[in-house]
Structure formats: C-alpha cells, structure tokens
Nucleic acid binder design. Structure first.
Lengths: 202, 202
DNA sequence: CGTGCGTCTGAACGATCGTTCATACTCGGT
DNA sequence: ACCGAGTATGAACGATCGTTCAGACGCACG
C-alpha cells in the first residue's frame, strides 16, 4: 500500500515535471495533454488518474513554485538581520538565485498563471501581491530609517516603481542568463543584490 | 481603386487591432481565428483575404511594434545629445513611455513572439538583440568616459546585467502601471530615467 | 487463492482547431 | 449595361482538442 502510493507519487511527479518542461517551452495553451502523456510514457487518459484536469496540473505547478519562493524569501529575510540594506540585498540576491535555479517553473508561473480558472488565478494573484509588498515594505522601512531615498526622485510613491524594477530584474533573469556562460549564478545573484542597493540608495 | 484599397486597408487594420486585443488577453495560442473574425464582424474565412495565416497576423503585430520601438529609441538618442547620462536617461524614459502607451502590442511582442515560425522568430530575435546592444553600448560608453561604474560591482561584464535590469524595468512597466492611478505616464517615464541612472552611476 | 483497489489502455465523445473553396455580392472603370 | 477585381459568405475539410469510460492488468491484502 505504502509502496503503491510512492509509485503513484512518482508518476504524479513525472507528469509535474513534464508540465514544467512543456509549458515552459510551448506555453500552457500551446501544450497538449497528449504531449504531456507522451513525455511521461503514458496515454492521455491516464493523466486523469493523477490530475483532475489540465488546469489542475497548471495550478499544481504554479502553486508549488510560489511555496518555494515564499520559503526562499523568508529564509533570506531571516538570515539578513535587521538592517534594511542587508535585507534588500539578501532578498534581491536570493530571489535572483531562485529564478536562475528554476527557469522553467518560474517562467510558467509568471507567464501562464493567467490561464488558471478565476478562483485559482485569484489565489495566485494574492500571493504575487504579497511578494510585491514584501519588497516594498523593506524599501519603505529603509527610507524611514534614512538609508534609502525615494522622495528625492520627485515622483510620489516612487517606492512602487523601484520595487517593481528590482522584482523584474530578478524575475526575468533566466531569460538572458546563460548557465554555460562565464558568469556563475552566485555572481549574478550577488550582482543583482548590489544593483538593488543602487536603485534604493541613490 | 484608391478608395477600394483604403477600405481594404481599414479591414486589415481592424483585424490587426483585434489581434492586439485578443492576443494580449488570451495569448496567441489561446486565441481562435473565429474569435478574431467575430471581433471584426467577419467570418473566419474572410480573414484569409487579408492575412495569409494566423502566424502572419502575429508577425505583422510583432514586426510593427518593433518598427515603432526602433523609431522611439532612435528619436530619444538623437534628442539627447552626446552625454551618456543624458542618453541613458532619455532611452530608459522613452522606452518606458512607449510600453505604457502600447501595453497590448508590447506584451504580445515580448511574450508571444516565440510562437512565430522559425524564420520570422529569428528575425524578431535579431531585432531584440539590437535593442539590448543599444542600451549596453551606452552603458559601456559611459563607463569609458568615467560617468558610469560597473567594474566596482566585482562581477565581470556587469554591463549586461545592468542593461537587462534597465530594459526589464521598462518592458514590464505596463504590467503594474495603472493609467487610472495617481501617477501619470510621464511621471513614471521620468522616474525610470532616474532609476536607470542610479543603476549605472552607482 | 481470490478480492479489490489503483492504474493503465484504447476507443470514443462532442467540440473546436486553422484553413480552403465554390459561390455570390459590391462597385469602380469602360 | 457589362466586366472584372476584391471581398464576404457559409459549408466543408481533416486534424486535433480536453475529457470520459469500459474493460484489462498488476499487486498488496485477507
């Protein structure tokens, strides 16, 4: 019984990974459940023993990557201590490393979540907003403590634009970062941490 | 005859705009030619009097937005004069304003160009690379003149990461910018220009 | 040794996909 | 009044879509 469950879990996991690869490459609407099945050595009908629908698989993928992102960001914040500069650098660096390490899952999560049915999409939108708020809060706290400066920029609530700039820098890094290139992922993550400080510190 | 052509051109243009709206909202693979036709008050078969295929419409959309982006960037560079700081600020600001002004076309161009047939996709990829090179060249020139500093960052070729950060800030601005919000497009564009300088100047 | 649950297949479902085509209509040019 | 080019139609094409289902297989359990 337990053994059966673990085999089942493996199949479900294999489908999950096939979804990562195929959604990443062809997009959600561009991927066929028969392609997903073939990538797992299964028949289309068999997928429905493991996921209720194609939507369901997409949500599983997007939800898991959000779980991991939350964990990574919480860990970065915890190990950074109290200073807003250390916190921002840790957040930007860890988020960048996260996106470099999981280019498939993060691209799918950021590009294809719009195809989720309304209820599940709302759930994802809420999680995305929470990540935005995490960065914006650190920026605002840093401004309050006089370490960051946004009022100088002359635009009201420049914090939102600045945090989106930092977020987009991290979120889309895998679209240009070349794992076989000269730079390592750690280098690039550290570099993004410093660029985030440039954005905030002025 | 000329009148006929102009009517034809209107229909072709209406299809183009329906493609903008529908591809933007549902993605290329998520949009049906019958939906496109209905949005124009036409029949599916009629579309093929104006575009050779669904692919062809996508390429027309993506190619046109690249034409306009090139023009905007060239104009910004021309009116900025010789200084790398003025040039970078003008490029980032103009590119941001461009993406705010055309959220549909730019999202389609940046997200759905991967669905183009290989030859046309290659053409788009080349144009994208040229835009990247434009920003990177300004950053490198500024570093040569001692106005920007990237070597300090400790990572080799930090210019690439910095120019991608600036590009992504501009490219994805329409995903969070709210036209009905308190900030104007001009404010945000100017703000992005200053943030680009923060990234480059250090 | 059966029993039953979980998983698989392969066929089938109705719907819909992008595209083609014969046909009819519109309308400026002669 | 007639012609011909350009455009619209609506039916049809074969293919493929996401999903369902009846039946068969395998394997842990009593």
């Amino acid at each position: 019984m337990l053994n059966v469950r673990s085999v089942t879990g493996d199949t479900r996991e294999r489908i999950h990974e096939a979804g990562l690869a195929l959604f990443h490459e062809r997009g959600y609407t561009g991927t066929t459940v028969r392609e997903l099945a073939e990538a797992c050595g299964l028949t289309a009908g068999s997928l429905y023993n493991h996921y209720a629908s194609k939507d369901d698989l997409l949500f599983a993928i997007v939800d898991r990557v959000h779980d991991r992102a939350d964990a990574v960001l919480a860990g970065a914040l915890r190990s950074a201590g109290a200073g807003p500069e250390a916190q921002l650098e840790a957040l930007a660096s860890a988020f960048t490393a996260f996106h470099i390490a999981r280019p498939q899952a993060t691209r799918v999560a950021n590009r294809d979540y719009i195809y989720l049915p309304p209820a599940q999409r709302e759930s994802v939108v809420r999680r995305r907003r929470r990540v935005r708020a995490l960065f914006a809060d650190v920026l605002r706290q840093g401004e309050r403590e006089g370490r960051f400066s946004f009022a100088v920029l002359g635009s009201e609530d420049a914090v939102e634009a600045a945090s989106m700039a930092i977020l987009n820098m991290a979120v889309w890094v895998a679209e240009w970062f070349d794992p076989s290139g000269p730079r390592t992922a750690q280098d690039t993550a550290a570099l993004h941490g410093r660029l985030a400080l440039r954005i905030a510190r002025g």
